[in-house]
Design a protein around this nucleic acid. Structure first.
Lengths: 248, 248
DNA sequence: CGGGTATTTGACGACTGTCAACGCCAGTGG
DNA sequence: CCACTGGCGTTGACAGTCGTCAAATACCCG
């Protein structure tokens, strides 16, 4: 467990969490959840700007994100980062197959976050014995794969403008599908810095800023400090070549 | 089943295949394999330059590649392709989770190929009931994810030269780990066109060619029609920033 | 031998990165 | 209350990697 991570003294159970129905937790067998003796399913809180884990760290734990946004990324030797995924509530993080001893990416809290931790060893044991769980993880992984492949298409072939538009559209639909948008769903929470946006899209912060300005001037969306207003969703989807087929 | 696919009349069993020990097939339960009545596990042959399946096609089947190389890619609206993975013997292709009706990528035979097909419906049923199989698929997926994330890092942050070097190094180790290199393991089979290399690395064929020339002039490797000779493996790894940690 | 495909090379242009500077805002401490 | 500070956003000038267009050459298969 990273030392920056704080285990809640009260060991509050994840079952009380609002995103419970989306989470891995849902299919973890009862005997696991109720194994009070081992305290396996602890709930953690993590303040913004702190790492949950870093590349190369031993893969001891996997997590379900209950609240908050996190940035999963891989570091490049020149100091730059490539964002892999923006984790939203309900996402499953840090799982490594048996035999992999260390993590291949880092996880950074964008906002204050709440997570539920699972020991990798326990997960592996359960995957081997509980088919329903393994099947569920397989489904989760397949969706992440599809999202990862969409990102590859973007990084390899799309223009900066297309990549930004796609990312915004993807976030919009992911939040929409999780009912995390308010009554006016053209306004979405946006705790991401432009630098992180650049991390995700393979662009520098400077160029990211230029593209955002252009999209604002073209009346597509306006990105403010903590929120983003979409003015023209159809054109956003068109520019990003986004189809919501592969968004969970 | 794509019409370009030919089912062998003799229904030769996959069990006779040399890569059997690496394949998904290995963990498919006996009662499935021996279900002669349903002919579920047919072996197929596919000539070079033919598609096994194309983006948007119904996801009826998944496959284990027994022999040959295939290119998995996604098409961009401008006609370009983004390569997702070069499938080598032993790889598992085309799996989609339940609920996904169509495939998100295309699979093109680079060389003549031999595959073993599974019906998605059967796979899903088995995943729900045979924990060992689901666990195995989970492991496979996790490895593909890691590879996909390495590719994202490359596409987003690395130079053209680094990407090409990384891809060659990755192929080298994948072949090496599968014992598919000859006595002189500095020589590897190389049925890939420069255009496909560009597809994988997010570069145009023209620029791909320039980079290959530079790497040849620098004494790193020489790419010929059907084979590639590595002259300086350490520098290849260094240039591509390749560590063989995440190669299956 | 011929036609299609793949490779190779050059000239040119554009998208994106780099460097540098400034402004804005929030939090902090005097 | 205000100055200070650090992080983030914004803008401009310039450079470089890589894409585009075009054409010539080499190679493979029938």
């Amino acid at each position: 467990m990273p030392k920056s991570l704080e285990s809640r003294p009260d060991k509050q159970r994840c079952a009380s969490c609002p995103v419970r129905e989306r989470a891995l937790f849902q299919v973890v067998p009862e005997e696991y959840i109720n194994d009070a003796e081992s305290n396996r399913t602890d709930q953690y809180t993590l303040p913004a700007r702190r790492h949950l884990y870093e590349e190369g760290a031993p893969a001891n734990m996997a997590y379900t994100l209950f609240d908050g946004w996190m940035l999963l990324y891989r570091a490049h030797s020149d100091g730059g980062r490539q964002g892999l995924r923006i984790a939203l509530p309900g996402d499953f993080l840090g799982y490594m197959p048996p035999g992999e001893t260390s993590l291949h990416h880092s996880a950074l809290a964008i906002t204050d976050s709440i997570l539920c931790g699972f020991k990798q060893d326990d997960l592996h044991r359960m995957l081997d014995t509980h088919a329903g769980l393994a099947s569920h993880v397989t489904r989760i992984q397949a969706r992440y794969m599809a999202s990862c492949q969409s990102a590859m298409l973007g990084l390899g072939r799309k223009s900066a403008e297309q990549r930004i538009a796609y990312l915004i559209a993807e976030l919009y639909y992911r939040l929409h599908n999780r009912q995390q948008l308010g009554a006016d769903d053209s306004i979405m929470p946006f705790p991401i810095t432009q630098e992180m946006l650049g991390d995700m899209t393979g662009l520098t912060p400077v160029h990211t800023n230029r593209v955002i300005r252009k999209l604002r001037e073209d009346g597509i969306f306006t990105a403010e400090r903590h929120r983003l207003v979409i003015h023209d969703l159809p054109r956003l989807l068109e520019i990003g070549e986004f189809t919501n087929l592969n968004v969970e």
